[in-house]
Design a protein around this nucleic acid. Structure first.
Lengths: 123, 123
DNA sequence: ATCATGCTTAGCCATGTGGCTAAGTATTGA
DNA sequence: TCAATACTTAGCCACATGGCTAAGCATGAT
């Protein structure tokens, strides 16, 4: 089996929360301050700021965003390159699937046939 | 902000675990039985079968795989189409980013300049 | 019928997650 | 200087996650 890749864990996990995806979508349009992001989110969810900050922290730890504090204002920007491992992994899946010509039914059919013949599957 | 999409939650979350990604990669090469998957995984991790089955269940709930029990053997196959929402979301991000011509530094510069001029950011 | 095989169910655990409230610190503007 | 603003820290909570062991059920082989 393939080697463990914790960066993929972190990336996919980060993307598994709706608030965090919202944030990323907003930042894809351009940088924004924490307040701007939070206010936009509050429109529908009304989440407490510390919780919201936790989401930003998670995105930053995943490398998906970078934030910078100037004075009392913290601005966030997207790191689009950080999506690369995700896209690579998906592409790998697609490639493997394309190379696979067999179908599920064929597999089961062969399995049953080989069992009846007493030869066992070949692998 | 965009509407909540719980399927994306489920998909990204499912992909956030290394064991589950391993399983998907293996199934991209073709269908396999639970034992085959588990044995291959055991080579490096030695996870108890009930735990392993929990991962398969999660993948099935996400729609990423489909399993079928014949007699005492359960076979699993990949549903490649289930990745579509994930790829669509990533593509949306890329599109938004491409449309974005500004840079982070420009944003902060404009922010400071507009504050000095007393006009405030425009949105 | 009996035993082996391949799951499945049940219960447990430590840790993490996604929130909350309360309080605090630093910066900015009046 | 003081009040307002923009975060930041700390502590709490219910629930979920990713594992474990033990036991059980169904099927297949002998």
């Amino acid at each position: 089996m393939a080697k463990h890749d914790s960066q993929l864990d972190i990336l996919f996990t980060a993307l598994g929360d709706p608030t965090r995806r919202e944030i990323l979508t907003r930042l894809a349009r351009g940088p924004a301050t924490v307040s701007e992001l939070h206010n936009a989110h509050d429109g529908s969810k009304d989440m407490a700021l510390p919780s919201f900050m936790g989401h930003l922290k998670k995105l930053e730890e995943a490398g998906l965003i970078t934030s910078e504090k100037r004075g009392r204002v913290r601005s966030c920007r997207l790191n689009p390159g950080a999506f690369s491992p995700v896209q690579s992994w998906l592409e790998t899946q697609r490639t493997l699937w394309s190379e696979r010509l067999d179908r599920f039914d064929d597999y089961v059919t062969n399995l049953m046939k080989e069992r009846k013949n007493g030869t066992g599957p070949k692998d």
